[in-house]
Design a protein around this nucleic acid. Structure first.
Length: 430
DNA sequence: AAATCGGGGGT
DNA sequence: ACCCCAGATTT
C-alpha cells in the first residue's frame, strides 16, 4: 500500500512544491542553530503567526545563547508573556545554560545531546537536527501526522504515543538524500497551508492524485484522533486591592508558586468561590454579598486587610484542562499604611542570587502587624490550587508603569489594563 | 497511558 | 462552541 513508488512521488513533489511556496519566516532567514531552536520551542502548540513577533523580540533581547543563559529568569518570562506554556521559557533558559556549560556555547548536533536539552522532546530534537544541521532525522508533529495519515491512509489514533513512533519510521524513510532540512519543513508547511485540519485544499495539493485518503473520500475524516476531555470549570473570586496613603494609585499583585500552573507569573490575588448550591454549579453572582464576605475572609487569611467594595467585572479564562470564571471585586485597603515597605521595585536584579541567598531575610511586611487584634492570624504560607502549603507568596504594590517589570498571564494583563484605563478615564473626566 | 501545562485562530 | 495547533514533562 505504501509502495516505494508512491513514497518517492510524495517526497519529490512535496519538495518541489515547497521551493515554490515556502513562506518567508524570520527563522528561515538565518542558519543559526540557536534561532532554529528558539523558533521550534515557541512553535510548540503555537501557530506561526502568533510566534513571529515573539521570536523577533526574543532574539532582539537575547541575541546569543550566552545572553539568554545569563539573563534573569524574570526577564525571560516577561519576554514570553502572553505566549503561554511558560515552562517552555524556563526550560529554554535552563537548556541555554546546559549548552554553555557542557557544549562550549554551541548547539550540539548529535541526537543524544540535543535530546538531552531541557524542553527538547522527540519532535524538537528532530527539527533542530534536520533543519539546522540537515541530518536525516524525522520531525513528526501534528501537521506531519495529519499529512501522512491522509496520503497513506493510516487509521491509527494519532493521540497515542505508539502512532507517533510509527509515523517517525515512515517520515524518516521519506526523507530524500541530503534534503532533510527542506523536506521536513516542506511536510509541515504543506500541513499548515494545504493539508489543513478542516477543508483541506486538495485542489491545489501537489500530491493529490496519489493521496490514498482523498481517493477513498476520507480526507476530512482523517486523521483519527480521540478527543480530549473538556476543561473542568472553576469559579474564583479575585481582588483588585487599591492602596491608600503612600500606596495610593497602586494595586496589590502576588506571585504564583514556582511550579505548576502559570509558575512564577504574577496575578491579582484570587481564591476559589464558594459553591453555589442549586442551579448553575458554582459561578458566583457578581452582586453576591456572601461572595464578597468570603473574599474579605480570604484576603484576611492571606494577611491582607482589605474590604471588597463593589463588583468590578467578570473574566473568563480557559486553559487546556481548566476553565476559570473570575469575579473581580474592587477592594479598599482598610488600614492606613506605614511608610512604604514592600514598595514596587523591579524584580529582575535579585532573582538569580535569590536561590542561594539564605532565607533569613524575610520580605518586608505588606501591612503593619502591630494593630492587629490577632497577630497570629496572618499566615505567611501560600496555598496553591492543589491546596499544598507552599512557599511564601511574594506580593507587591504596583502602578500602571510597573507592569512592564512583571510577567502576567493574559487574563490579568487585560484586567489590570481595564482597571487602569477606567480609573484614569474617571479621574480626567471629572 | 493519562494528566498537566496557555492562548488564540479557524470554522 | 469546538477543534487544534511546528509538544514536553510529570505521574
Amino acid at each position: 500500500m505504501k509502495r516505494q513508488e508512491d513514497m518517492e512521488f510524495f517526497s519529490r513533489h512535496l519538495l518541489e512544491w515547497y521551493h515554490r511556496q515556502k513562506r518567508d519566516l524570520p527563522w528561515r532567514r538565518s542558519r543559526d542553530p540557536y534561532h532554529i531552536w528558539v523558533s521550534e520551542i515557541m512553535l510548540q502548540q503555537t501557530r506561526v503567526d502568533t510566534v513571529i513577533p515573539y521570536f523577533n523580540r526574543f532574539i532582539g533581547r537575547f541575541p546569543t545563547i550566552e545572553s539568554l543563559a545569563e539573563a534573569p529568569e524574570e526577564e525571560v518570562l516577561k519576554c514570553w508573556e502572553g505566549l503561554g506554556y511558560y515552562s517552555r521559557a524556563r526550560n529554554l533558559q535552563h537548556a541555554a545554560r546546559q549548552v554553555e556549560d557542557a557544549y562550549g556555547g554551541k548547539v550540539p548536533d548529535d541526537r543524544e545531546a540535543v535530546f538531552g536539552l531541557k524542553g527538547v522532546g522527540p519532535y524538537t530534537a528532530g527539527a533542530i537536527l534536520s533543519i539546522a544541521f540537515n541530518r536525516p532525522e524525522p520531525a513528526v508533529d501534528g501537521n506531519v501526522m495529519r499529512v501522512l495519515s491522509r496520503f497513506f491512509l493510516i487509521e491509527d489514533d494519532i493521540a497515542k504515543a505508539k502512532t507517533r513512533v510509527k509515523m517517525e519510521g515512515l517520515a524518516k524513510e521519506l526523507i530524500p538524500g541530503g534534503e532533510a532540512s527542506h523536506f521536513n519543513q516542506a511536510l509541515m508547511e504543506h500541513g499548515a497551508l494545504v493539508c489543513t485540519p478542516k477543508s483541506p485544499r486538495c485542489l491545489v495539493c501537489p500530491v493529490m492524485e496519489r493521496c490514498a485518503g482523498r481517493l477513498a473520500g476520507r480526507e476530512t475524516t482523517l486523521p483519527v484522533k480521540t478527543k480530549a476531555k473538556p476543561p473542568r470549570p472553576e469559579a474564583r473570586l479575585a481582588a483588585l486591592v487599591e492602596g491608600r496613603g503612600e500606596r495610593a494609585g497602586r494595586v496589590l499583585i502576588r506571585q504564583r508558586p514556582s511550579s505548576g500552573l502559570l509558575a512564577r507569573m504574577w496575578e491579582l490575588p484570587h481564591w476559589p468561590a464558594p459553591e453555589n448550591d442549586g442551579a448553575g454549579g458554582g459561578a458566583a453572582r457578581p452582586e453576591d454579598a456572601a461572595a464578597m464576605d468570603r473574599l474579605r475572609r480570604s484576603l484576611a487569611e492571606a494577611g491582607i486587610s482589605a474590604r471588597p467594595e463593589e463588583h468590578f467585572m467578570a473574566a473568563e479564562h480557559t486553559f487546556s484542562h481548566i476553565h476559570w470564571t473570575l469575579q473581580v471585586y474592587r477592594c479598599r485597603e482598610e488600614r492606613l499604611p506605614l511608610p512604604m515597605a514592600a514598595e514596587a521595585r523591579a524584580p529582575y536584579a535579585a532573582q538569580r542570587t535569590a536561590v542561594e541567598a539564605p532565607a533569613e531575610a524575610s520580605p518586608p511586611a505588606l501591612f503593619p502587624a502591630a494593630d492587629s487584634a490577632d497577630p497570629g492570624a496572618a499566615p505567611e504560607l501560600f496555598a496553591d490550587e492543589a491546596g499544598h502549603a507552599g512557599e511564601r507568596a511574594e506580593m507587591r504594590w504596583i502602578g500602571r508603569e510597573d507592569m512592564a517589570n512583571y510577567a502576567f498571564p493574559n487574563v490579568f494583563l487585560k484586567l489590570l489594563n481595564a482597571y487602569f484605563d477606567q480609573r484614569d478615564a474617571a479621574a480626567s473626566g471629572g
